[in-house]
Design a protein around this nucleic acid. Structure first.
Length: 582
RNA sequence: GCUCCCGUAGUUCAAUGGAUAGAACGAGAGACUUCUAAUCUCUUAAUGCAGGUUCGAUUCCUGCCGGGAGCACCA
């Protein structure tokens, strides 16, 4: 049993005894008694707010429900008095893992874990996290579109999606990843129209230039709009040789580019889905379900009236009878269902699609009732540049690759003075650059925009990916030195040892991973690892770790080793690679 | 106009309804003959406004102000 559960049980027991002793309500009705994790270390490792079992608190219906209490409560009002009772009850039979219990503030009981507990936790390092064991989860992310650039928005999406799927995996879930490509649709028609009319080459067909030009013409001239819609239709029915040739070539080239990038970013997908498949399937489903009343005809198009759910109407099949993005999403839902039997599906997109997904998820729920409620949509903000809004429609884009390269070049400059070989320099720069980017993207809660100031993002001081990598590299270096000097690691508690904050923090790791998985929140992990690295660096500055004359040196090495393990594991979850030298 | 998201130190971000609102950058002062100074130590500074619910509100509710996104045949 995890320490937190043990503690909860202990508190529950005590409450039960107190209530029975005072002949009041039954004490075992507090199902949801839970300790909290205080932000301030002075408040202990865990803390329990006794106010939450006071009658005043529980006689509010909302609170009673939260705490799992169903009866009207009577009893002691003063939380500090109750706290005293609980404390003395616990102290009657204090377990070894508990150092001491304190009462503080308006009625908190603070629990301090013992150094024996920390020592034994460090020893049994690889604690399994099983909160999502048995769950099958589909994670869909990145979704770059052929005939358009893989831009920094896709990079952001990829970084988030990758981190989330890794976090879910270590929580015990079976995770399958998918990326979904818009290989048909109006954007393709726009790109092909531009190539045919402006005599562009194959490079421009796939690098977004053709798309941007086609889009401009589409918006400015009514007759072009018609031509492009015509091309769009021909792409679907493959009736035009020349268009087929451009399409096939562009599609192939685009995917070659994407594959190269996935390799560089370390993303592997279990499935690649395409709108060319989902479109047809979606169209069939929409037409079938139109007869059953899920969708209806309106102004020549087939729409879903979201108003019945407090949302708005969206078009699923356009006047031409072609599936829009919406219908494709319905088709995709079926493809995903057929590919992997999942309990939950997570789709990562930009937040400009929020209201779109609200409607589409309802529509899918009406089509497949078993999917109702299992689709999760996680959205992030824009990766904004100081220069203004990036738009692939106008061709004003920064590609993911060019951004990584810009950052990498700066790192190469920093690394120059370190006497690395060419290969070492190349390897370190790539890892550090990607770490810097990943960190900037993942450090805040998912949802908001990220103002991407290139200059600032490549400053490696303070909170940053390289800061974490550096702390890990340092720890490894210490361990290496110990090996050479013949100092052995030892998990036995030295005589007179006082626990350090670093130990407290290391032992917390599984809890953080669990919460990050439950809340789809990689930033919790980033915050934790940053604090952990800071604590290690600070400890490292204070203490001499490798020292033949120090009897606690072996234990310090054990702490160092545990720190390195946790950091490496944590960085992997964020998609950040470690470096041997820095 | 309607809907959704967001307003926390000068800046970029934290804070499961809890205790003295945490970091980092910037600015200022220090620390390498000692395990990697991409580091460490100290100082500085913030909850948009007005109400409400609560023992307790940055967090929940209402209004206002300010910013962003989306609102029919694009993705």
């Amino acid at each position: 049993m995890k320490i937190k559960e043990k503690l909860n049980k202990l508190i529950k027991e005590s409450i039960r005894i107190i209530y029975i002793a005072s002949d009041e309500q039954r004490g075992d009705i507090f199902d949801k008694v839970m300790v909290e994790e205080p932000n301030d270390k002075n408040h202990g490792d865990y803390s329990f707010p006794v106010m939450k079992i006071s009658p005043t608190f529980l006689n509010s219906k909302r609170n009673a429900k939260k705490m799992g209490v169903s009866e009207v409560m009577k009893g002691e009002e003063d939380p500090r008095k109750t706290a005293e009772l609980i404390k003395s009850e616990i102290e009657k039979n204090k377990p070894e893992w508990l150092e001491r219990v304190e009462i503080a503030g308006p009625g908190f009981i603070n629990f301090f874990l013992s150094k024996e507990y920390f020592a034994s936790s460090l020893r049994s390092a690889n604690i399994e996290v099983e909160s999502l064991k048995g769950e099958n989860i589909f994670v869909e992310h990145t979704q770059p579109n052929p005939f358009k650039e893989f831009h920094i928005g896709h990079l952001m999406n990829n970084v988030i999606g990758e981190a989330i799927s890794r976090i879910l995996k270590v929580n015990g879930a079976t995770v399958k990843t998918a990326t979904y490509h818009g290989d048909v649709g109006l954007h393709v028609a726009k790109a092909i129209w531009a190539v045919l009319n402006y005599n562009l080459d194959k490079v421009e067909l796939v690098n977004g230039q053709a798309y941007a030009k086609g889009n401009n013409a589409y918006e400015e001239r009514e007759e072009v709009k018609k031509e492009i819609l015509e091309i769009n239709k021909k792409i679907y029915d493959r009736s035009d040789e020349k268009i087929n040739e451009l399409y096939d070539e562009g599609r192939k080239k685009s995917f070659e580019n994407f594959e190269r990038l996935y390799g560089r970013l370390g993303s592997k997908f279990d499935f690649h889905f395409y709108e060319s498949e989902s479109g047809e399937i979606g169209k069939d489903i929409v037409l079938k379900k139109k007869d059953e009343g899920v969708f209806e005809e309106s102004d020549g198009a087939v729409v879903f009236k979201g108003e019945k759910y407090g949302l708005h109407t969206r078009v699923f099949l356009n006047k031409e009878g072609l599936p829009t993005y919406e219908a494709k999403e319905v088709g995709l839902a079926k493809i995903k269902k057929d590919s992997f039997s999942y309990d939950k599906s997570v789709t990562v997109t930009a937040n400009e699609q929020d209201s779109f997904f609200d409607v589409v998820e309802k529509a899918i729920g009406d089509v497949y009732p078993d999917l109702s409620g299992v689709l999760n949509h996680i959205s992030h903000g824009m990766l904004k540049l100081p220069s203004g809004k990036m738009s692939s429609r106008t061709g004003n884009v920064i590609t993911a690759e060019s951004l990584v390269d810009i950052v990498k070049e700066k790192v190469v400059e920093v690394v120059k003075e370190r006497g690395f070989t060419k290969e070492e320099s190349e390897e370190v720069s790539e890892k550090v650059a990607l770490a810097a980017l990943r960190y900037s993207i993942l450090r805040g809660a998912i949802g908001g925009d990220i103002i991407f100031d290139i200059e600032k993002s490549i400053s490696f001081e303070g909170d940053s990916g390289p800061y974490l990598q550096y702390a890990h590299t340092r720890a490894k270096s210490v361990l290496e030195k110990a090996k050479q000097e013949g100092v052995d690691m030892n998990f036995d508690l030295p005589v007179g040892w006082e626990s350090v904050n670093l130990e407290r923090l290391i032992v917390r790791f599984p809890e953080i991973v669990e919460r990050a998985g439950r809340e789809y929140a990689p930033h919790l992990l980033v915050t934790y690892l940053t604090e952990l690295a800071g604590e290690f660096n600070s400890w490292y500055g204070r203490e001499k770790i490798v020292d033949l004359n120090d009897l606690s040196s072996g234990y310090k090495l054990a702490i160092t080793q545990s720190f390195a393990n946790v950091m490496e594991r944590g960085l992997w979850l964020l998609g950040i690679e470690i470096a041997k030298k820095m």
